[in-house]
């Protein structure tokens, strides 16, 4: 399984990966991107099974990326990992095709539940 972690914070990417390993996904291949543009590049480079997106990022932020992907007909499973998790954000994320929205700080159990929601 290949997972793409998209967050402008390198530290946050490493925290997400560490938590995913603790959640039982240690065998996954982890790819990283620092913003939406780098994420698009990573998508082109290899088959991604699931993308975890931050909401607020410089250049191309997470929700803009998700909405662009939907408009372009790109089929890729993804969900958000973000600090703010308001109802409006949930609605917008769902409309853009997100399978889950995990709030920071998260636990391994929260990641397991999100992955189950994504059918993984």
């Amino acid at each position: 399984m290949k997972l793409l972690i998209v967050d402008d914070s390198k530290v946050m990417r490493s925290i997400i990966i560490r938590t995913l390993k603790a959640a039982g996904y240690g065998d996954a291949v982890f790819a990283e991107a620092g913003n939406g543009i780098e994420a698009l590049k990573a998508m082109r480079e290899g088959a991604i099974d699931l993308m975890l997106l931050d909401w607020n990022m410089p250049d191309l932020n997470g929700i803009d990326l998700a909405e662009k992907m939907k408009a372009a007909g790109i089929k890729l499973k993804f969900g958000f990992v973000t600090t703010e998790t308001s109802d409006e954000m949930r609605k917008r994320a769902t409309a853009a095709g997100a399978l889950f929205l995990v709030g920071k700080p998260f636990t391994p159990e929260a990641m397991q539940a999100a992955f189950a929601q994504a059918g993984l």
Partner: peptide, 9 residues
């Protein structure tokens, strides 16, 4: 970066 993430949460 790490301090920023801690204050963020």
């Amino acid at each position: 970066d790490g301090a920023h993430e801690i204050f963020n949460v």
